[in-house]
């Protein structure tokens, strides 16, 4: 494990991406200290104020202001909290549920497997965004509902992975040895199988965080996201869309933030993959 971690972040790009992710996390964690302004403070006199380097700009509001005169940079910094929180919590929740369900289905097989796999097949039948949109329409907006709407489907990803790995692992010698020694199913699943299949689960989880962040932004963009005045990048892009002709900065910067964070996660997760799971190597 240690030697593998040594291989983590093998090249400069991955290291840069890792730093980028770290920067976003720090930004989110210390948002109140970093943000130059209160992200919810409106000032109609600063409505659609351009970024600092343009005419009428002001360095106190480096990336300009939105339609209500709120500082865009501060809102992006606080918006990182929403994106990262939802991305991480959804994937964590989904991983815990998915791993448990996948272990149970793959190890116990029989009726348990049929039930879980059946549910997985049904959920796989829904395009992701459509499913989430339907659930958000049902539950109404809000961070918690968003987490639930995404997690209801997201758990399928680790579940399928774990089930497949478990099916393979249950036939291996070490598991048979444990069974011969009279270990209980639970202790075999958690004690023997789980540690051996954790690497691919982590690899997939990191990539999924990026996808969940895009999904969250898409839902917010469609108006099914978090409640104001909470800043979410997706809803900032949506709000700015109306002003794109004469105030491009309102939507452009939050979109750029999504792109950067997701890109960093994707690049960094490739490095994690290479380090943790040699099977993925080219």
């Amino acid at each position: 494990m240690i030697s593998r971690l040594g291989k983590l972040l093998p090249d400069k790009l991955a290291r840069l991406a890792g730093l980028g992710v770290l920067a976003f996390i720090v930004m989110a964690a210390f948002a109140p200290l970093i943000a130059p302004q209160d992200p919810a403070a409106t000032d109609l006199f600063r409505r659609l104020q351009p970024p600092a380097w343009l005419d009428e700009g002001d360095w106190a509001f480096p990336l300009g202001c939105d339609a209500l005169g709120r500082d865009i940079l501060s809102r992006i910094i606080f918006g990182a909290r929403v994106s990262i929180f939802i991305g991480v919590v959804v994937v964590l929740l989904a991983t815990v549920i998915g791993v448990m369900a996948g272990l149970a289905a793959g190890y116990l097989r029989g009726a348990t497997d049929r039930l879980i796999s059946g549910l997985v097949d049904v959920l796989l039948g829904f395009p992701y965004l459509i499913f989430a949109v339907g659930l958000m329409a049902m539950m109404g907006p809000g961070v918690l509902n968003m987490v639930l709407a995404l997690a209801y489907k997201e758990w399928v990803v680790p579940c399928r992975l774990v089930r497949g790995e478990t099916l393979a692992a249950r036939e291996t010698e070490y598991v048979e040895a444990a069974r011969a020694m009279g270990a209980s199913s639970l202790s075999i699943m958690v004690g023997e199988i789980l540690p051996n299949i954790l690497s691919p689960v982590i690899v997939v989880g990191t990539v999924r965080i990026a996808q969940v962040i895009i999904l969250e932004a898409s839902l917010s963009f469609l108006g099914l996201g978090v409640q104001p005045p909470t800043a979410s990048w997706g809803s900032m892009v949506a709000d700015g869309r109306a002003f794109i002709l004469d105030a491009w900065w309102v939507s452009t910067f939050p979109g750029l933030a999504i792109l950067l964070l997701v890109l960093c996660i994707n690049v960094a997760s490739q490095a994690v993959r290479d380090a943790l799971d040699p099977r993925f190597h080219d």
Binding site: T42, P141, G223, P229
Partner: peptide
């Protein structure tokens, strides 16, 4: 009405009517 509502909430809050906005469909 989101934009107008947020502006109203901010202005009322300044005058001691602390207003939260809830956007629904």
């Amino acid at each position: 009405q989101k934009e107008t509502a947020e502006a109203i909430a901010a202005l009322l809050t300044q005058a001691g009517i602390r207003t939260k906005v809830a956007i629904g469909e």
